[in-house]
Amino acid sequence: MSTDNLSRPTASLIASDRRCGFVFTDAEREAIEHEIGHYEDSRAASIGALKIVQESRGWVPDAAIPAIGQLIGIPASDVEGVATFYSLIFRQPVGRHVIKVCDSIACFLTGYDELAAALRAELGVEFGQTTADGRFTLLPICCLGNCDKGPTLMIDDDLHGPVEPSGVRVLLEAYP
């Protein structure tokens, strides 16, 4: 039930990324520079920069960390500190679609347990894991502010609720 395994890089990933190096795309670089312009201090763009890289690549490879540090002018260790703090920065590849299931109290009261069980059964993975075909990653998330429509989940940028356990299969079909 934790996202820890996504936040923690593994040794083999670090090694392979170091060999490959890391080059920002023009679009990424432009977006990060635009972001820097919003703040008095470029450090403030560190979370935005991580999100920009994640948006275009699906996750944040290790080699991106020093590259971001260099671009915004802060130590790589600080970027790493930020990258591992925030739960929605992924430090391992995730599936094509990320399912975030609200596990907070309002959804708990309206059927979270049954929904979570249906998702685990349908996907064959536990929370924090990605399906073998790389299609879905299943994650828990704090209250999504959709408490009048619990139980609630998000798939990518789409909010769904209330989601009946029996409706899970059909819902997932919309995300090939």
Binding site: R43, S46, I47, I74, V82, Y86, S87, L88, I141, C142
Partner: peptide, 19 residues
């Protein structure tokens, strides 16, 4: 980018500063 604690106002300020 996630984490409930960002709502606490001084944590929020740190987060806004990129920490």
């Amino acid at each position: 980018a996630g984490r409930y604690i960002c709502g606490e106002e001084t944590a929020l300020i740190n987060s806004l500063e990129g920490r």
